[in-house]
Design a protein around this nucleic acid. Structure first.
Lengths: 182, 182
DNA sequence: TTTGGCATATATCAGCTTGTTATATACCAT
DNA sequence: ATGGTATATAACAAGCTGATATATGCCAAA
């Protein structure tokens, strides 16, 4: 599955501009398991539009470039369904943190403590975002989907397990929980 | 942190060829949190050697290209230490599985079941590899490192939490545990 | 027995992705 | 006024993946 399918998937829920898709990926339910940059989103939208899988509408803006709002076409929906039904690729997880921890004998205690603290703070941030998207403060189309609860639950479980493990190894981290989750 | 630091890190533990580094990443302790392809490893080794951070020794092979065994130099060790002490980048996690599950309303029950089964099997495979690398059947330099227990524990915790979550959502998966872990 | 698949070993490259920069403007806080 | 944040698109160097090419030996299946 590639960015094309990703864009089609998001646009099957609500029409959006490239900027809004990026924002949705960064701040929405997707946050903890999807990444995409402008450099891949904009070309993908242009291409999908050229192929008739999307339609565009230009919205004029004050002092900004026109907003190009994309919507999925019937043909786009067909292609999306086909793209989703192939067995998904294996999850990819990359962690510099774990690499550094494996080679911890080459580092000072300070460096290790800093890495642990950063990792814990990152996990807390991701956890907070998941809870945020589920609450009332999020009028997100995504969070009302039938699959949203499952996905949020998966993320919550995994992130919480990782945070618990770190806190167990270094109990001082528990104090920072409140600060980081705010 | 980039492939350069990754190669230096592995070579700080044992000298190896590009092929062996790839194998180590695929089958060793790294497996669940590091990825790297030949297309990045070979150029990195050539470059690091040109910069004097590695030394090479050619081993003749029967009916195969010469094996180029790389070893880290003193200068390489210095550069590695510097590379490791910068605060590690945030973990990256990409999951087509979760994306598909979020859009499950567009799929058949069969497709969803297949995706769940695949995800569960993948998790079991990763878990089995972690236990394998810790046992006696693994004469791996990596698994004797002071940091190895922490890293294996982190992986075990997170993967087990994910598998438990899936099994809780779809209890039929528990039966497959044995098959997949074999 | 021969055919195909797997393991060893390096190298290359198209194509995709990231991360950054450029462009343009408004608004808010310092 | 100066800098940061937010909206919006575009483009590009640099990096990485996944596939392919090359060459050979070994083992199992047909």
């Amino acid at each position: 599955m590639n960015i094309r399918t990703l864009c089609l998937g998001i646009l099957s829920l609500q029409e959006a501009s490239g900027y809004e898709i990026k924002k949705e990926i960064e701040e929405g339910v997707f946050n903890h398991f999807i990444d995409a940059s402008y450099g891949s989103i904009y070309p993908a939208l242009t291409q999908l539009n050229a192929e008739g899988l999307l339609s565009v509408r230009s919205e004029e803006q004050l002092g900004r470039p026109d907003k190009k709002v994309y919507a999925i076409t019937e043909e786009g929906k067909t292609v999306l369904a086909k793209g989703l039904s192939v067995v998904p690729a294996r999850d990819k997880y990359k962690s510099e943190f774990l690499f550094v921890m494996l080679l911890q004998h080459l580092l000072s205690k300070q460096d290790i403590g800093r890495a642990m603290g950063k990792q814990h703070a990152d996990l807390m941030e991701d956890l907070a975002r998941i809870e945020n998207c589920n609450g009332e403060n999020c009028s997100d189309e995504m969070s009302n989907l039938p699959g949203a609860a499952f996905v949020a639950g998966y993320g919550r479980t995994v992130l919480r397990a990782a945070a618990d493990y770190l806190e167990q190894c270094q109990p001082e981290l528990k104090k920072q929980t409140f600060k980081a989750a705010e």
